[in-house]
Amino acid sequence: MNRFAFAAAAMLATAPAMAQEAANTSTDEMTDPKVQEAPPPAPDAMPADMSAMGTMGEPAAAPVAVAGEAVTTLHDLKPQPGWPSPVADDAPYSLVLLDLLEYRESAGAGSLRWDGFGWFGGDYNRIWVKSEGTQSLGSGGGGEGEAQLLYGRLITPFFDLQAGARFATRWGNGPDLSRGYAVLGVQGLSPYRFEIESALFLSTKGQISGRLTASYDQLLTQRLILQPRIDTSFALQKDEAFGVGSGLNDIEVGLRARYEIRREFAPYIGITHRRSFGSTRRILQAEGERTRQTSIVAGVRVWF
């Protein structure tokens, strides 16, 4: 018992001295200039996978282009065998639009009228086929029609330049007549969404004439559409065989309302008024034809 008491007393007596020695040793290490924190590693000594990292482990900034120096972002960008074209902009497409297929009722005999076109090709080059005409349902059964074969080239984002040939014919009282023409025209969508179709014609007899058609689709609803339209023609020389005089020949204005049962099929009704001018008016009067006429029309617009 006395031994344990003596050992405990000895430990208590030496504890303050041991604590003082430890404190002195720590103070000496902090104040000793030879004992300092090791410096950070140099950038060159950093691991390769860390040298490309920015602050706080974020990716470093992208390389900055300097004049005269190439900046490589990816390796081996050369086209490989069998790779497809990066932009598929040369695929062929086609469209057939019968814009007018209508019956016309007026003070005289009723008539049928058609006006349509089709094209095949890509975004820049197309082959166009156009046709229009009228057929009288009266006793004489006269009428006129034409067909065009054109090459079209895109010259602006919304307009094609067209060139080709036109064949026109006229039948009814007297012998049937036909004539060929060279064609140069422009067709497309103008600002404010007006559909424009214009053309100049040079006949095999050297006669120059022209035509302009403009229309606009006003959406009353998603399916009910109101379309005002104007057609006009002129000639620099008269062609009495086809009832054409020099100057402004005629103007026709129309208003049609169509309902698109499907986008590709839309019946319509409307009204048109046509009036002839100048020497063309005098030629028609000599033939016993009307020089002004208002008609109620009903028809269908189809495309595919």
Rank of each mutant, 00 (worst) to 15 (best):
E37F: 03
R282Y: 01
Y181W: 09
Y192S: 02
E146C: 06
F194E: 09
A107Y: 00
K78Y: 03
A286M: 08
R274L: 10
L177W: 03
A65C: 02
M11F: 04
L255H: 03
F6G: 07
E289Y: 01
P63N: 02
G121Q: 08
S106A: 14
A109S: 15
P267N: 12
T156R: 08
A9L: 11
A88T: 04
A52W: 00
E144K: 07
P39V: 07
Q187V: 04
G57Y: 02
A8L: 13
G185F: 02
L236F: 14
W171D: 02
L220N: 01
N249C: 06
Y216V: 03
F201Y: 15
V64R: 06
D99P: 00
A65G: 06
F201W: 01
L154I: 00
T27Q: 14
L101P: 06
A19I: 02
T232S: 15
F158Q: 10
A38P: 00
T204D: 07
G57A: 09
L220P: 00
T294W: 01
D239E: 13
S215D: 07
S26H: 10
G180L: 09
A199G: 02
L100Y: 05
W171F: 15
G141Y: 15
S233Q: 13
S233E: 15
V302Q: 04
R281H: 10
E146M: 13
R179N: 08
P92C: 03
L226E: 04
F201M: 01
V253T: 13
R292P: 00
D89G: 03
N125D: 15
A163S: 14
G180T: 11
Q285T: 10
L189F: 08
G82Q: 10
P81A: 15
T27L: 14
A23S: 11
R229M: 02
Q187T: 13
D239H: 05
G138C: 08
A15N: 03
G82E: 12
A199M: 09
N2F: 10
L284T: 07
Q80V: 06
F158V: 07
G142Q: 14
T291S: 06
A48H: 07
A286I: 03
A257P: 00
G210E: 03
P16N: 15
A22I: 10
L97Q: 12
D217R: 00
R166Y: 01
F159K: 03
G68F: 12
D32G: 06
R262L: 10
G110P: 02
D160Q: 08
V300R: 09
A52S: 14
L150G: 08
F304K: 07
V183E: 06
I230E: 05
D123G: 10
L200H: 06
S203W: 07
S215F: 03
G180I: 12
S209W: 00
A88Q: 11
Y93E: 11
I261K: 08
S246G: 12
Y151L: 13
I127S: 06
Q293W: 05
A199Q: 10
Q187N: 05
S209A: 08
G288F: 04
R126T: 02
G206I: 04
